[in-house]
């Protein structure tokens, strides 16, 4: 464990908690892409299948359970509890255009042709594009509540910190996970445009992000 990975996991946890609390306390999921949240629940499900088979540390197990519970709870809030506030007309990204290529690639490019490893690879590739329905929804509505932009900021920051973690691990322990690194770079690049808007608009105190 190093400081970049720890900060990255904390940033990821903060993002997930911000989103969950935003929906739970405002009793509304307006402006939130349910599709992205379903994809994230799928990412955690296919990545953490080893939850019961391989024990790494208390921290690792606890964080996996927390991420799984909060992601499914968020999907539940969006599609069941507060479904009347779910803006399905704006959440129109065709997720099959993500799932099919990601599934195909995970069969082609992986470390080991076993179910667990292919599902892990699928989760890595899927995570790099899972935010696209949310970013697409924001460009379609042309705006996002500031709390939603804080969620996206911490979510984007988490994988950027993981990139630093992989540089650190490469130089200190020779660790290099090519599939995770390449996907992490792609994932972080998708946030660059948002990061620019976040810094230039939201941090200037605007009540919400309105796209030009």
């Amino acid at each position: 464990m190093n400081v970049f990975r720890l900060l990255g996991d904390v940033s990821h946890l903060v993002a997930i908690i911000i989103l969950f609390l935003k929906i739970f306390r405002s009793k509304s999921c307006a402006g939130i892409s349910g599709k992205s949240q379903v994809l994230f629940a799928l990412v955690f499900t296919t990545r953490y299948l080893d939850l019961f088979t391989s024990f790494i540390s208390i921290y690792n197990t606890v964080m996996k359970v927390v991420f799984l519970v909060l992601s499914y709870a968020t999907v539940y809030l969006i599609y069941l509890r507060f479904r009347s506030s779910y803006d399905s007309e704006s959440d129109t990204f065709r997720v099959e255009f993500l799932l099919v290529p990601v599934a195909g690639l995970s069969f082609l490019e992986n470390y080991d042709f076993t179910p667990i490893e292919i599902l892990w690879t699928f989760s890595i590739y899927l995570e790099s594009v899972a935010i696209l329905p949310q970013l697409f929804m924001i460009t379609k509505t042309g705006e996002a509540e500031s709390i939603t932009t804080h969620y996206l900021f911490f979510l984007g920051l988490y994988r950027a910190l993981y990139l630093a973690n992989w540089v650190w691990r490469y130089h200190t322990e020779g660790f290099f996970d090519q599939i995770a690194v390449v996907s992490g770079v792609v994932q972080t690049i998708f946030y660059c445009d948002f990061f620019y808007l976040y810094v230039t608009k939201v941090l200037k105190g605007n009540s919400k992000l309105t796209l030009p």
Partner: peptide
């Protein structure tokens, strides 16, 4: 397949 690094990250 490249060597499979232990998936010890979240």
């Amino acid at each position: 397949a490249d060597e499979s690094p232990a998936h010890d990250e979240l």
